[in-house]
Design a protein around this nucleic acid. Sequence first.
DNA 1: GAGTATTGACTGATCAATCAGTCAGGATAT
DNA 2: ATATCCTGACTGATTGATCAGTCAATACTC
Lengths: 214, 214
Amino acid sequence: MLLAENQEDAAQDLALDKILRAAEVEFAEKGFDGAGMKALAERAGVSQSLLHYHFGSKDKLYQAVIRQRSKLINDARLLRLRVIDLTEPSALDRIIEALFIPALGPEGGGKAYARIFAGLIAGHARDQALVRECYDPTAKEFLDAVEGALPGANRAIAAQIYQFALGVLASVISRDGRVERLMGNEADKLNDDALIRQLTRFVVGGAKAIADTT
Amino acid sequence: MLLAENQEDAAQDLALDKILRAAEVEFAEKGFDGAGMKALAERAGVSQSLLHYHFGSKDKLYQAVIRQRSKLINDARLLRLRVIDLTEPSALDRIIEALFIPALGPEGGGKAYARIFAGLIAGHARDQALVRECYDPTAKEFLDAVEGALPGANRAIAAQIYQFALGVLASVISRDGRVERLMGNEADKLNDDALIRQLTRFVVGGAKAIADTT
DNA sequence: GAGTATTGACTGATCAATCAGTCAGGATAT
DNA sequence: ATATCCTGACTGATTGATCAGTCAATACTC
């Protein structure tokens, strides 16, 4: 615990981490109810009992996955957010980027956690308290920033923009080729950077449209 | 089945409709895996066997719920979409309204189906084929409309806008007071009409921002 | 430093509960 | 009397969770 706290790449061979990694994938693919402790244990290469030994219950394991990942994402978000000069013209663009990039980058855990995140947006009753705990504090900082960077935005509008932005993010995260399918032949033209640029442009454009005419 | 096809308000006393209504609520609250056939039958006030008698399996029942509701929504959407004059300046606004209003109005089935819809956006493997069947044809008409109404939009951009719009819609649909919580004291100011207006303004603003600079 | 107690990590066997689904037969209307 | 609607009783499989107990390593005692 003293050194080597590199949680991501350097694969900790501790069983506890193997479980967390496997759980993230399993919950992402099947959802909370769809995921099975047996299948999860097999994926992690440990006995099913060990899951309960370390985490107590399925619920607690689920919460542990989300707490860990959301911390990584939020830290990266705040790191980007807090260096933004709110007076410069492109401040809003940088705020939105600070919201999106960590979720889509390596801190976001790739497709795996992305699915879970998209599920959280759907807002089932089970997740409500957890979302409140893990995401609300960071969200409030973003609201402050949006309020400061966007002329004509009060707290209510900032909150709306924030939620809209998360919805757009979720829609992108959980795409399984639907965009490409609907686009037809001109697919594959958007890599991750271009996608983030397009995402940001969309949200910023929408945000300004809301703030202008109210 | 011959007359009285008013599926919504005039409560059909047929068991089949009671099941469909109960299933919509149950699937919305618990998700597909979380919902149980026994609980579902109790909610509908019929025996569990009747579910299998009418629908064969849990999967088929789930599909029936989505097929019925998506048909209502899509019909209402196309009804609005097809009367839009794509040459008038506010065409894009009306297209987006045609996408949103049916999903949030009475045809949309209220909160119940809304949750299911938000879940579909999350895009789990199970739902992929069903989404393709129920929503893709209507989606393509919307893509055509967006492409026609928004100068500078090709098929790829139209598809992006469409998916972003669905994400924004999902984020609004499944909110359980999070916006109000983040807003602070100035809550309750947005009723449904105002929400739709804000939604539309946001998406149209974002769409134009994307189409402009590409 | 040999022997012993204690702890933490881990597993196999097993639990009651719940799951979706089946089936024979009752009810009812035509 | 035939077909449709509907139910209660039931089944095998799977669920999350519990428990007794193994094993290795550390700490403590004399």
